[in-house]
Design a protein around this nucleic acid. Structure first.
Lengths: 226, 226
DNA sequence: ACCTGAACACCGTTCAAGT
DNA sequence: ACCTGAACACCGTTCAAGT
């Protein structure tokens, strides 16, 4: 109908991708559907197939768009500070659209800014003394870690009411509370932190520190072995 | 028809889960469908709803089944050796069904063997001196890492012919080859390792070493701060 | 160049009914 | 207790046709 056309911008690759990311933010990635997007634009589902070859191409374009939020500046300083800063930037970019973060994994080498940040990471690791193979291993794990951290951060699944989320947490709490305390002492005392993450920023900082610290340690080993 | 009944075992939670894992191995997790499974058992789709409340419950049961492959023995030795061994065991269990590995993430605290290995990990980290909060952080990242390593290991996506996979690799190779060599020197020299993983065991060993080394480094920091 | 209409082969799921 | 039949509201996609 008319009202849809007034609310929505013209159909194009960019407007569809933008709306798709918003939709994923609001209702989860599963809500991103060719038919649903068409409806949002007041258009026939097949209209989207003029702008995208198929749905996979749309998801790829969403993944590419995530990297657009990366700052364009270059990285300077000691290699581990550069690596750390770059991981923070990547995490910040992906956290703008947590439900779509998983799409970034297979697109990093397919878009400009993804290639740039990969080059920056590999350059830092080369400066650290890693041979290209080990540098590639570390870079892969770093990307994987950042994507997983963002995608799996609790509370990242939308489409649930607050009540449903609270109920979900209660179920998990109850399951742990029922464990025999002598066999599961550590699980029980860590329960509050396993069930929910009340400070995502701190969790991110710790996790990325762990990753960089591990990289620093592996650097010594690779140097010692080589 | 009759032939189906002769080929397939009786319908039950266990037989459905087993067949679902096989199906995912052969054709990917997306091929695991209520209707497809029903067809494999020569049964109506709705027959599955007697054994599972809904599809999510089926996927959860698949996730639980992954942990059944964990060895029952306890872990002994220094904390970092225990942690390392336990990560290897978890990786080995998940690698039996790579396409289903992602299901493990949300089920670890919901099944017996998952709780056991979590307790073992937290116990090792407690022995290392981590407070429960930091121990939980490390344990979460460890699980996330192992699941992601298995799920994202290249060549893990079935349902493709060898030709299609080769073609896919060629496209990626060509994309990197076209980059300006002065701006992307490190990407270009790391290209063979970024495009494909020719030795998964080595990649796993390196990645888990990195994780454990990072944990050892963070232990010093937490101790220094506390 | 950009979009529609009709159709096809799929999904998960409900609900009443059968044995 | 365990399964079927019919139906519903969804998917992605093709292909010919419109403007």
């Amino acid at each position: 109908v008319r009202t849809k056309k007034l609310e929505s911008p013209a159909l194009s690759r960019d407007t569809v991708v933008t709306r798709a990311l918003e939709l994923a933010d609001a209702e989860g990635l599963d809500a991103v559907t060719v038919r649903r997007l068409a409806q949002e634009f007041g258009v026939t589902p097949m209209a989207l197939y003029w702008h995208f070859g198929n749905k996979e191409e749309l998801l790829d374009a969403m993944g590419d768009a995530l990297f657009d939020a990366l700052p364009p500046h270059a990285y300077t300083g000691p290699w581990h500070e550069r690596l750390r800063k770059l991981l923070d930037d990547l995490a910040a970019a992906l956290r703008r659209h947590p439900s779509s973060a998983e799409l970034a994994y297979r697109r990093i080498m397919a878009c400009r800014r993804g290639q740039d940040i990969t080059e920056a990471a590999l350059a830092a690791l080369a400066d650290a003394g890693f041979p290209s193979r080990e540098a590639a291993f570390v870079a892969c794990q770093a990307l994987m870690t950042v994507v997983s951290l963002v995608a799996n951060l609790p509370g990242a699944q939308p489409g649930l009411t607050d009540d449903e989320r609270d109920q979900h947490l209660s179920v998990k709490r109850a399951a742990i509370a029922q464990l025999p305390p002598d066999h599961y002492a550590h699980v029980i005392s860590a329960a509050p932190y396993l069930i929910n993450c009340e400070d995502p920023d701190e969790y991110f900082a710790f996790s990325l520190d762990l990753l960089v610290a591990g990289t620093q340690a592996m650097r010594q080993r690779v140097a010692a072995a080589g």
